[in-house]
C-alpha cells in the first residue's frame, strides 16, 4: 500500500489530473502540489501526487556520482 510511483501528467481538470503510468492512465489528485503542468512527472501515492520529479536535480544526483568517484 505504501508504494509511490512516478507518472506523466497528460491532462488537467481542476484539482485532478490524468496521469500516464507507462501506458496505464489514472485520475490523480494534484491538489497537494503547486503549479502542475501537462508534461510534468509526478510521484503518486494512493491516488495523490505528493511530489514533482525535477529533471535538473536528477542530473545533479548523477553528477554527484561522478564527484564521489573523483573523490571530491
Amino acid at each position: 500500500m505504501c508504494l509511490a510511483i512516478p507518472g506523466k501528467v497528460v491532462e488537467i481538470r481542476g484539482h485532478m489530473a490524468k496521469v500516464d503510468f507507462k501506458g496505464i492512465l489514472r485520475l490523480v489528485d494534484i491538489s497537494m502540489l503547486e503549479d502542475v503542468r501537462i508534461g510534468d512527472y509526478v510521484v503518486v501515492h494512493v491516488g495523490f501526487a505528493i511530489s514533482k520529479l525535477d529533471e535538473k536535480e536528477a542530473k545533479e544526483t548523477l553528477k554527484l556520482w561522478d564527484e564521489i568517484l573523483r573523490g571530491i
Partner: peptide, 13 residues
C-alpha cells in the same frame, strides 16, 4: 541523495 523528488521543507501543503 533524492533531490529530484525531496526538498528540505517537503510538501508544505
Amino acid at each position: 541523495e533524492y533531490s529530484r523528488v525531496v526538498t528540505k521543507e517537503g510538501n508544505t501543503k
